[in-house]
Write a protein that binds this DNA or RNA. Structure first.
Lengths: 160, 160
DNA sequence: AAAAAACAGTTAACTAGGTTAATTAATTTT
DNA sequence: AAAATTAATTAACCTAGTTAACTGTTTTTT
């Protein structure tokens, strides 16, 4: 009924890749007692420069929950839930902004920083093996391709 | 604290791309009253040849729930839940296998087939615009890159 | 041929991650 | 001073996922 189609095939590959990577990510983070999603929040709070959000929105001050919601593309209420888990685990601390009492600034605790550092070693090792067969140019080609796709996707949304 | 790293950047691009695509997919399927996940099950049941699972596991007979679980990489119990929703929506029908009463064969109802056909038009149009800037060779390069990654990832899992 | 093992599916109780709508409190705008 | 906006929370809910215990059928073993 449905015919072979290279566009559809590209999409299915991207999804499969992302899912597989996430599943492997879960294996890694599980050993540290957190989920991939929770780990991703820790990376946002230490401002991992590889995260796309920071390329478009450079940040000086510690992030607020509102910005976290923006970066993760989820609702503000959901971020409250996610943060409560990380705060209960003593990985994240929330401090009232002294200039604007509505705001709360987020930062990692010492335990949070240590955890990110430990996971970072595993991640780098894992990625290094994963991409062993590719040259720097290969990777740059990939990134360019994906950036073009991302721009196309955002335009298609805006057209609505 | 964390340095720039092209490997990490590639991964974040893949994740972002997959998420954005999924969100846009939700926009499309929502209009038809289903989720992206439910739509994906419909595509598996009509054996969309672009799905990676069928490239590795060609199938003659109608799929069983067990195979759906394998293709989606989720638990058997979860598939029961997902199917119940689609059966309630009268998009999927389940028929006992006459040779082995344990098995139940799955197929789309007429309404299910019509829905897939309608969504198919929207999907093709969407993908065509999305990849307008790329040549066939570009797309093939991408697929090859992603296939190599996928093989690498599976090996890393097996090493455990 | 009876017992044991394997298989396909379901149910129940649970978790993670997500949503919207209503509410509180602080700060800005008019 | 009143109204509007902003940041965060809470409550009630949904979807997608899990494991463990169970039912019934078919196959394998002895």
């Amino acid at each position: 009924m449905i015919k072979k189609n290279i566009n559809a095939s590209v999409i299915f590959h991207i999804i499969k890749l992302s899912e597989t990577w996430k599943r492997n990510g879960d294996n890694i983070t599980q050993e540290f007692g957190i989920t991939t999603q929770q780990w991703f929040i820790l990376l946002l709070l230490v401002k991992d420069p590889n995260i796309l959000y920071f390329k478009l929105n450079p940040h000086e001050k510690p992030l607020m929950a509102k910005e976290l919601a923006e970066a993760l593309n989820v609702s503000r209420a959901n971020v409250t839930n996610l943060l409560n888990i990380l705060i209960k685990k003593k990985l994240v601390a929330q401090v009232e902004d002294s200039f604007d009492k509505r705001r709360k600034r987020l930062s990692l605790t010492d335990a949070g920083i240590r955890m990110v550092e430990k996971i970072e070693k595993v991640r780098n090792e894992y990625n290094k093996r994963l991409f062993a067969k590719f040259s720097k140019a290969d990777k740059e080609t990939m990134i360019e391709f994906m950036n073009t796709c991302l721009m196309g996707m955002n335009n298609q949304v805006l057209l609505k």
